[in-house]
């Protein structure tokens, strides 16, 4: 089984602090990590490789420092990695990102499955997985919570939707986007870390891929960010401090009266 796992390096969003005056993100001291939801994709791919043999290639489009994310993927068990990095890729939206990742997967040529995380925690779009599938003209199953079996060139998966689990037979090659339910990501092993330190990670730019330059980066992106601002949070909260038994009873009384007045109880 040959598997490609596209991953993304993201800022640790829980740690993001905003500059209240300028409304911009304070990037200093914010760690760059592998998109947490991509860890499930890596784990799924590595488990399939352990079961069916073959290989797992991690790819990532990003600046040169995104190499660190790929090394972590190798430490978790991916066999090799390719970094897609070029100034021409900068400013890509999900359309242009899907286009470049698809071009890289096409160049890798030999693959049965492309496994993606459900979304990245920074952009939060979930559009690149289906975008890659569309660009490669492959079938896609999103929100996959379980891979049941492989038979006759099909892969049977459980797709988590609002009302339950759909069971689908998906013809290979295919793109899957996976959710947390699928597996618990492993920690890198010592041997994995050693391999990750030494492994050579090729960098593919525009010249290495069959792409139309007009479709890359900001110029190739249909969408434009025109404004970034802080969400406004505004409600007049009546706050009651309940720091002893009596205050607790009083606060609860007021709350019950408030809920009754709003006809909520």
């Amino acid at each position: 089984m040959h598997i490609v796992v596209p991953i993304k390096q993201v800022p640790e969003t829980n740690a993001v602090k905003m500059d209240e005056k300028t409304g911009t993100m304070i990037r200093e001291g914010v760690e760059a990590i592998v998109n947490p939801l991509d860890l499930y994709a890596i784990e799924t791919a590595v488990r399939l490789r352990e079961q069916y043999e073959g290989d797992v290639v991690a790819i990532s489009m990003g600046p040169p420092k995104a190499e660190a994310a790929l090394r972590e993927a190798v430490a978790m068990g991916c066999d090799s990695a390719v970094l897609l990095s070029d100034k021409a890729f900068a400013g890509s939206d999900t359309w242009a990102t899907s286009y470049v990742l698809a071009a890289a997967i096409r160049k890798l040529n030999n693959y049965d499955l492309v496994i993606c995380g459900e979304r990245a925690t920074d952009g939060d779009t979930g559009q690149v997985g289906p975008g890659i599938a569309s660009s490669l003209d492959l079938p896609v199953a999103t929100y996959v919570g379980k891979i049941e079996k492989f038979s006759n060139g099909y892969c049977r998966v459980h797709r988590l939707i609002e009302q339950g689990h759909e069971i689908l037979d998906v013809k290979l090659p295919a793109v899957l986007t996976v959710v947390k339910e699928i597996a618990n990501p492993r920690l890198p092993t010592l041997r994995g870390k050693q391999k990750a330190r030494k492994i050579d990670i090729p960098v593919w730019g525009v010249d290495s891929l069959k792409v139309e330059t007009g479709r890359l980066g900001l110029n190739g992106s249909p969408t434009r960010v025109v404004k970034i601002f802080r969400p406004k949070l505004a409600r007049q909260c009546q706050k009651h401090v309940a720091d002893d038994d009596q205050a607790v009873v009083q606060a609860v009384d007021k709350l019950v009266a408030f809920l009754q007045q709003k006809q909520l109880i």
Partner: peptide, 27 residues
């Protein structure tokens, strides 16, 4: 609290049992 209409600054372990009891009575 910045998005809340009503807030209690306190320990849920002290407040929730009292509240549940009051809601039960009201009910």
């Amino acid at each position: 609290f910045s998005v809340a209409d009503f807030g209690i600054v306190g320990d849920i372990f002290e407040i929730l049992p009292v509240l549940c009891e009051r809601l039960k009575q009201a009910g």
